[in-house]
């Protein structure tokens, strides 16, 4: 198997890092910022739940699941684009 050039690797890693930072920012928003302001969000309601409470018991959880799925789709594309995908 041909060795991947170090330029390709650097470009691949730059994109991978950027993707990771975006993912971590969204993770921080729904894991920390939203819970911190849960009380303020409770004024609004969603599906009959106070909004802040809804995020804690369901909303943030659903976003975490989707976040991983979407990240993996983007990461697969990055890998293929740089010719470092496995299959």
């Amino acid at each position: 198997m041909a060795e991947v050039s170090s330029e390709t690797r650097q470009a691949h890693w730059r994109k991978t890092s950027t993707l990771t930072y975006v993912v971590l920012a969204i993770w921080f928003l729904f894991g920390y910022v939203v819970p911190w302001f849960a009380k303020d969000l409770d004024g609004a309601s969603f599906l009959g739940f106070p909004l802040g409470y809804y995020f804690i018991v369901q909303g943030s959880l659903i976003i975490f699941v989707l976040l991983i799925v979407v990240q993996n789709i983007f990461q697969d594309n990055i890998d293929e684009e740089h010719g470092v995908a496995e299959e």
């Binding site: 990771t20 993912v23 971590l24 993770w27 729904f30 894991g31 819970p35 409470y53 804690i56 018991v57 943030s60 959880l61 975490f64 699941v65 976040l67 991983i68 990240q71 993996n72 990461q75």
Partner: peptide, 24 residues
């Protein structure tokens, strides 16, 4: 009550870190 929901957030959000930083 509410304070214990920190476990629910923590025990699911941790997988974002597993995927982004560790597992692959």
């Amino acid at each position: 009550g509410y304070p214990y929901l920190g476990f629910v957030i923590g025990w699911t959000g941790g997988y974002v870190l597993v995927n982004a930083l560790m597992a692959p």
